[in-house]
Amino acid sequence: MPLIRQEGSRRGKRRWIAVAVIAVLLTGAAAVTAIWFPSVAATACPGCYGLERLRPGLYVEPGLPQARRRHVAEVVEQANKRVSDFFGGLKSSPDVLVCLSEDCYRRIGGGRERGIAVLNRSVMLSPRGVDPVIASHELTHVELHARLGGAEVPQWFDEGLAVLVSDDPRYLAPTGDRCLIDSRRPLPATLADWLRAASADSQLYAEAACQVSRWAEANGGRGAVRALMP
């Protein structure tokens, strides 16, 4: 009997050691994420970065006047409507994190961009991105990838579609042929190549939007985009 109790005790100690090691590793991983990937950490835990929940799925910088809180909610609602109208409904429900100051945006891992889709699951908006156009652009990325279910499209198509859905006047003509730049050349297909090229030439978005809008128009409009989804 003593031998049995001793063996059981050893197994129990080994189990606790394993649990402790796992806890340490998880804590270390969380710390690394918070330090090196604050945007991922912030979208996983907005409250940990000081953001307040305005409504389910929408988090804002704390201390905003009521009028600015209403404006943020209206912008996100308008952006969601644009995306929903294009796709015929929504399959995604990303958290949206909104900052009205640059300090707040830097704290949650933002940079010089107006907004960004984080891992195609959440959206962060900077003070310069609290606008239905920018918000719907980023929400389109999330909705598209939710519908693709793991399938991939070239990055130029992803970006061009986001411009088209958001109806961005910087890169689209108001009516008729939406092309501001008549582009027929091959465009960057990977995210890394796209970021590198777009950082040198912002009009790459207009080229991508031209190609996507012409492709959609030639193949049945919005229905052609929906038909791509598995």
Results as ranks from 00 to 15, higher is better:
98 V>W: 01
101 S>L: 05
101 S>G: 08
102 E>V: 11
104 C>Q: 01
105 Y>A: 06
107 R>W: 07
107 R>F: 12
107 R>M: 09
108 I>C: 06
108 I>Y: 04
108 I>E: 06
109 G>A: 04
111 G>L: 12
111 G>C: 09
112 R>I: 14
112 R>A: 15
113 E>N: 13
114 R>A: 15
121 R>H: 14
122 S>C: 10
123 V>F: 11
124 M>W: 10
125 L>D: 07
125 L>H: 12
126 S>P: 13
127 P>T: 11
127 P>A: 13
127 P>V: 12
130 V>Q: 02
130 V>T: 09
131 D>Q: 11
133 V>A: 01
134 I>T: 15
134 I>G: 10
134 I>F: 08
135 A>M: 04
136 S>E: 10
139 L>D: 05
139 L>H: 02
141 H>G: 05
141 H>Y: 04
145 H>S: 14
145 H>I: 13
146 A>G: 09
146 A>F: 04
148 L>V: 08
148 L>P: 09
149 G>W: 13
152 E>M: 12
157 F>E: 06
159 E>S: 03
159 E>T: 00
160 G>D: 03
161 L>Y: 03
161 L>M: 00
163 V>H: 03
163 V>T: 09
163 V>I: 09
164 L>V: 15
165 V>I: 12
167 D>I: 11
169 P>W: 06
171 Y>I: 03
172 L>Q: 08
173 A>M: 09
174 P>K: 12
174 P>L: 05
175 T>L: 12
176 G>N: 07
176 G>W: 03
176 G>Y: 07
176 G>L: 07
180 L>R: 12
182 D>C: 09
184 R>A: 14
185 R>S: 13
189 A>F: 00
192 A>V: 12
192 A>I: 10
193 D>E: 15
194 W>I: 03
195 L>Q: 15
197 A>R: 05
197 A>L: 02
199 S>W: 01
200 A>L: 12
200 A>H: 12
201 D>K: 07
204 L>S: 07
206 A>F: 03
206 A>S: 11
207 E>Q: 14
208 A>I: 08
209 A>E: 04
211 Q>K: 08
213 S>M: 08
213 S>V: 01
214 R>L: 07
216 A>K: 05
216 A>P: 01
216 A>H: 01
217 E>K: 01
